[in-house]
């Protein structure tokens, strides 16, 4: 019971500061779960993110479910997800009820302009950490460059392709041309 409460509270805290689309939460998860508690390894986190990107739903929620499940089974996955959702739900309910012009408030705009700068740096740090274990040879480097280019310039492509297609294609590419056993 205490462990479930722990799980809930940790994800409540991460959910409360999950700015920038889930990716910036990687350094937070690393700090709280890998370094401080040893619940998961950085490699596991990396794979959770990779799978979260090609499965339905919010990536951050996918990762929360994975970690909760690893810790305490299905109940753990559900508890971690509920913890993750708690603060965003309360904030939006408050905004919807009382603060319809929330996003226009000068103090909010200035604070978040600052936070976005920090989110950039957090994501850069996440990429740095994952780079070595993900881009392991020329094949993965090419895969990286092609997908990165396609996603960044997706607005200029003649057809709209959802990002999930790229990720699933990369998985299939791996099945046919990839190497097994490069776990670390």
């Amino acid at each position: 019971m205490k462990e479930l409460l722990d799980l809930y509270l940790i994800f409540l805290r991460i959910g409360a500061v999950n700015f920038g689309g889930g990716y910036a939460m990687l350094p937070l998860l690393e700090r709280d779960l890998a370094e401080n508690r040893g619940w998961v390894t950085t490699d596991e986190l990396r794979d959770y993110f990779a799978i979260g990107q090609c499965t339905p739903g919010i990536i951050a929620l996918n990762v929360a479910t994975f970690i909760g499940n690893k810790r305490k089974g299905a109940i753990g996955g559900i508890v971690a997800s509920l913890g993750f959702l708690a603060v965003p739900i309360v904030i939006i309910l408050l905004i919807a009820a009382f603060l319809t012009n929330f996003a226009e408030l000068p103090v909010v705009r200035n604070a978040f302009a600052g936070i976005r700068v920090c989110v950039v740096v957090l994501i850069v740090r996440a990429v740095e950490k994952l780079w070595k274990s993900s881009v392991v040879d020329t094949v993965t480097l090419i895969l990286y460059l092609v997908i990165f280019g396609l996603v960044v310039f997706s607005a200029y492509l003649p057809i709209r392709i959802t990002t999930a297609v790229f990720v699933i294609a990369a998985g299939l590419f791996g099945v046919f041309f990839g190497k097994a056993g490069v776990k670390k």
Partner: peptide, 9 residues
């Protein structure tokens, strides 16, 4: 192996 490269991209 493929997914990780895509994920980081």
């Amino acid at each position: 192996y493929g997914l990780r490269a895509a994920s980081i991209a």
